[in-house]
């Protein structure tokens, strides 16, 4: 997969979540992605960025325009150096939360995007990579 351009944004306060997802939306608008694809990826990014902020103590979001053969897409990597997730499978399950949310964010984000990959190590942090193809 080839990265055509990228940008890294901080996730330190709630306003940053809005900034990151608006950036994703703007990128996709410029590139002429369909409205539904824009909404799906922006919503997934919103869920994951808020997780990084609320549970990971903040982190960074890396936005990439990628190309795989003739296929173009947007990849977003959201990473934090928080406490990590002990049981990823459990965390992905709908309705499970250690906080006060609905417990739908992680599983929901996976259903919204074309590709979803999660890495987490207790004590080291969590990294979620998602891709939406055109």
């Amino acid at each position: 997969m080839k990265v055509l351009s990228h940008e890294t944004l901080p996730l330190r306060q709630p306003e940053d979540v809005v900034l990151v997802r608006n950036k994703v939306r703007n990128w996709m608008q410029e590139e002429g992605y369909r409205l539904i694809a824009q909404t799906r990826l922006a919503t997934a990014v919103s869920e994951l960025a808020r997780n990084a902020l609320d549970y990971g103590g903040g982190g960074v979001a890396r936005l990439e325009k990628v190309q795989n053969g003739s296929r173009e897409g947007i990849r977003v990597v959201i990473e934090d150096r928080g406490p990590g997730i002990a049981d990823v499978e459990q965390a992905m399950r709908d309705g499970y939360t250690t906080g006060s949310g609905m417990g739908l964010g992680l599983g929901g984000a996976r259903r919204l995007v074309d590709e979803f990959e999660i890495w987490s190590q207790p004590g080291q942090g969590t990294r979620v990579t998602i891709v939406q193809w055109r």
């Binding site: 909404t39 869920e47 609905m102 739908l104 929901g108 259903r111």
Partner: peptide
């Protein structure tokens, strides 16, 4: 709106 209804279904809300 339609796209919001669709994402809500995916989210399970």
């Amino acid at each position: 709106r339609p796209q919001i209804a669709q994402t809500m279904v995916n989210l399970g809300v």
